[in-house]
Design a protein around this nucleic acid. Structure first.
Length: 447
DNA sequence: AGCACA
């Protein structure tokens, strides 16, 4: 088809335009270089670099047509050609009247981040892990994930641009801590830019999108509790239906795990309503009831495969239960309803290990008080921030973060990412990862 | 060295 003017584009007879087309630029010429080139003739209001297959073309748009004419006229009669980095640049009027503003908003800070997860196993990164990672910087409103040519990506919505930029500054280019990822997963690097979005549209809670501001949002059919249908994840792996009740089995139980220990461990993620322990297949299992699915999901994500005690002892395996409401008839050393204050408590003397704080000994059954029991600084400071965690805790407070302090990733000198293998290191109160052997949440090391 | 992209 003939061009609009009916004339070939490479004639000198193109009508003037505020936009100039530049050719023969050095590879990956920057916007700054283009502005520098046009500045003597007027105000450059927009540029577009790295155009064309060789990325050696560009456009610059002046505020006024006369400025563009001035530049063309100057170089038309100049003995010195326009140059960038010593390379002659050829100029002509563009056949368009303005640069379409397709510049990525990558430089404009917004409250929504576009996160690209790099790595061969990027697709295996769950939305819950992303939630965990980004929640360290503030309340995460919504997350959506999708796959594009760029790979596996997520949009993460914060309340404001300040929070988003603190997360971006701290996380861009970093790897997701290995202890948050399933075993044998390669490193997953985060590349973060700002998105032009300000409010994501999340219709369902699902394995690919979440709205943490609306706990009543319908759950995607694939995740409805009771459907007992296995759903299939992105990786084709079977996923259990999500539930507010977790089934924890304890492997390699060298030490007795008491009800109180479980309560302490699971309370770190939100209010534990009920716990029921029982024996099955020669091992101990427990059902742990949270008020909502999201809290359970975060707890499951964080605790799965980790050990309550050092040395690979009492390794937790966690799945979603098909139950949604536990029926606790009596409070004793194996079952407890923390939502009912006045149920008589059977006298229990939990077996306490030396590693456990002395305060734990004989700890009375206590109603959930909004604050997870923090026996030592090396305990993980895990607090859930999703709706439904109605304690007085700082809502932004999340795992691996000292409450009310700078996010650990931003802490100078802190090296929470790309840490050594194996150990599930938690941030302690000073914001540094705690490599100490007293940390109760150690991941098994295969060797 | 010859007109762009989500």
């Amino acid at each position: 088809m003939a061009s609009v003017s009916g004339q070939p584009q490479f004639r000198y007879t193109q009508p003037p335009s505020k936009v100039l087309h530049l050719r023969n630029l050095p590879w990956e010429c920057t916007e700054e270089e283009l502005i520098e080139l046009g500045k003597p003739f007027g105000k450059v209001v927009s540029t577009k670099c790295n155009v064309g297959a060789n990325k050696n073309q560009a456009f610059i748009e002046f505020a006024d047509l006369n400025q563009a004419i001035a530049m063309i006229s100057y170089y038309a009669s100049s003995s010195e050609p326009a140059q960038v980095r010593g390379k002659t640049v050829y100029l002509q009027y563009s056949n368009r009247q303005e640069i379409v503003n397709n510049k990525t908003n990558a430089d404009v800070a917004g409250n929504v981040l576009l996160v690209t997860i790099e790595g061969s196993d990027a697709r295996l990164v769950s939305i819950d892990v992303l939630h965990l990672v980004f929640s360290a910087f503030g309340f995460v409103h919504k997350i959506t994930t999708f796959e594009k040519t760029a790979g596996f990506q997520a949009l993460v919505q914060f309340s404001d641009a300040e929070t988003a930029s603190s997360a971006k500054n701290a996380l861009d280019g970093r790897c997701i801590p290995s202890y948050l990822l399933p075993d044998h997963m390669g490193p997953c690097t985060l590349r973060i830019t700002y998105s032009a979005h300000t409010d994501l549209s999340v219709k369902f809670q699902s394995h690919r999108s979440r709205d943490y501001t609306n706990p009543y949002l319908p759950v995607a059919p694939s995740a409805i509790d009771g459907s007992s249908q296995m759903t299939v994840g992105l990786d084709g792996k079977k996923l259990e239906p999500e539930s507010n009740v977790l089934l924890a089995s304890i492997e390699n139980m060298q030490y007795a795990v008491s009800l109180d220990v479980l309560h302490m461990v699971f309370s770190a993620f939100g209010p534990v309503q009920k716990i029921a322990m029982f024996d099955k297949n020669g091992g101990v299992q427990a059902l742990i009831q949270y008020p909502d699915v999201q809290t359970a999901m975060v707890a499951k994500e964080a605790l799965e495969g980790h050990c309550i005690y050092d040395g690979g002892f009492c390794k937790l395996h966690i799945s979603f239960s098909r139950h949604t409401v536990l029926n606790i008839k009596v409070n004793n050393d194996r079952s407890r309803d923390y939502t009912v204050p006045n149920v008589p408590v059977a006298n229990t003397q939990p077996s306490i290990l030396g590693q456990l704080p002395s305060q734990m000994a004989g700890a009375p059954a206590q109603q959930y008080a909004g604050m997870p029991y923090m026996p030592s600084p090396s305990q993980p400071t895990m607090h859930q921030s999703t709706a439904g965690w109605g304690s007085g805790q700082v809502p932004q407070s999340m795992p691996m973060q000292a409450p009310n302090t700078m996010p650990p990733y931003g802490h100078p000198g802190a090296v929470p990412f790309q840490m050594g293998p194996g150990v599930m290191q938690m941030q302690n109160q000073n914001g540094f990862p705690n490599p100490g052997a007293s940390n109760p949440y150690h991941q098994d090391r295969p060797q």
